[in-house]
Design a protein around this nucleic acid. Sequence first.
DNA 1: TTGTACGCGTTATCAT
DNA 2: ATGATAACGCGTACAA
Lengths: 321, 321
Amino acid sequence: MTNIKDLAKMAGVSVTTVSRVLNNHPYVREDKRNAVLEAINRSNYQPNINAVHLSTGKSFLVGVVVPYIDHPYFALLIKGMASEALENNYKLVLFQTNYLETREIEALQMLKQKQIDALIICSRKCSWSTIEAYLLYGPIILCEDTRGKRVSSTFVDHYKSFMIALEHLYQKGHRKIGYCIGRKSGTNSRQRELAFKDFVENYHLPYEPAYIFEHCTHFEDGEQVIERIQQMSNPPSALLVTSDEVAAGIVTCAQNRNISIPGDLALLGFNNQPIAKMMNITTIEIPLVDIGRKLFLQGINISKEAAYQEIPVTLIERETV
Amino acid sequence: MTNIKDLAKMAGVSVTTVSRVLNNHPYVREDKRNAVLEAINRSNYQPNINAVHLSTGKSFLVGVVVPYIDHPYFALLIKGMASEALENNYKLVLFQTNYLETREIEALQMLKQKQIDALIICSRKCSWSTIEAYLLYGPIILCEDTRGKRVSSTFVDHYKSFMIALEHLYQKGHRKIGYCIGRKSGTNSRQRELAFKDFVENYHLPYEPAYIFEHCTHFEDGEQVIERIQQMSNPPSALLVTSDEVAAGIVTCAQNRNISIPGDLALLGFNNQPIAKMMNITTIEIPLVDIGRKLFLQGINISKEAAYQEIPVTLIERETV
DNA sequence: TTGTACGCGTTATCAT
DNA sequence: ATGATAACGCGTACAA
């Protein structure tokens, strides 16, 4: 493999000059520049990126922490980040954690080791203090409300949006409301739980733990939701479903069992994924791809101050409520 | 940031000794080892990975080229690769290409620049000769039949599996058979097209181009398939659908329009994704996660010879044929 | 068993 | 405008 030393020799100049033309620096005479350029062509030279990284201390790599990638929510976030990464000549390094803290720490370590320039954590298991300890090694961006903390974030106010959804259901006459969620822990989930509790309290509705369905992440999880509802003596009349994917699964399963939607069960999804449009699912639109883009941009932004971008959501009325 | 030089000074040894304990090499006396270990603790030392990479010429990074990540087919492949990467202490660098050749070449370039140790191409736009030119810079693994070429691959014989599926439909009495596919170009798609043509020829069936539906990748694409079928005067009685996701979309849309499955239209999906099980879709099982694992392993395997792993598929009969 | 010294390929500093 | 040369941080012959 030819390196800049070889090029210098071939072009009859110094390595400095080679480096200058390579990086489009000024102060190099036209003829010398051409000589270098020609040497590059003749030699099919490729810079050794690792040497560049060592020398510059930058890697143009941004880490992305997600629990799973085969999940539309995260896939859409990544899609947004990937496209923005491309724009800015960065690459994405993927950390699929399955919510294992050790793997999250691995990602944090890579930041510390300078193998990545920034780390975007889309969802996490680890505590806030764990993250805090790594803050001095590089930008860490979160996809949750971090106002008051010294970290940038792009997020939706899940308390607020859950409340909007719940109020909508209430206005439509529903009093027995439940919700489906991926996992109960997690910052965003706790926000939603809080909203739910406040809601039932405000409207003097009973708080019914059986109306909360955990482990709802994929389409096929809709089946168990329907099954459990069918076994209830006093089932909910409406469900908030934190992913349209799951809502679609519920709709499908309900159809097979002659459960009328929204007659027997009203459904309000989240994200406004394409599947929601096709299946006419009422939903809260969350621009995930756009959030992904913004997260990435925050990651490579060198401003010292933490920025908090709240993304507004909108209710899209269709036919499942 | 402290480096091994500092550690050496602190521990009163040479950098070599420090490097030895860092990399668990033999030939270092216990007391010196402890001295180094203690220095590491006191200093919260972190190795600069980029320096390691430059020195060793390895990066423990493997590139993955996919057209889209928000697609279950690729998401499942990546899932498999990610888990195997974790096992082996590698990280994945994602290239989302949207089937743009320039982006594929970028990935190839990173291999040439040694920023990644290997490149796995899950699906491509670029020509074989383009890839061939980069073969000398590191392992390139493909997810398509490469027998006869000097590249390793893990693949399913799409000709064969398409034929299995077609024969099954034929045995069930179908004579007007069509199929849905993501894109018509691409090695795998052409294999399937070939199978389809051979099939209709063997059984003296008419070749009906209108029975081939392109751009079928997501759940919601099922809608347009149904729409087009409904407009046909002589519609197909059975469809091969190269993704269960799409098959599920077709089923859902068909239900809404009172089209009986399999009565009016038989459906045979591919992959055996969880959604297929839930919706009772007859399908060809393709172990995508497993294929992802094997692709990754081939990437980091240093054997000089190309290996070709054909993955067998199995027909799973359910209720849509 | 240990340490010196050099190589990895590039960028940056500074003198010319 | 140009070129030595010193970092960058680590691994590793080779000598001791």
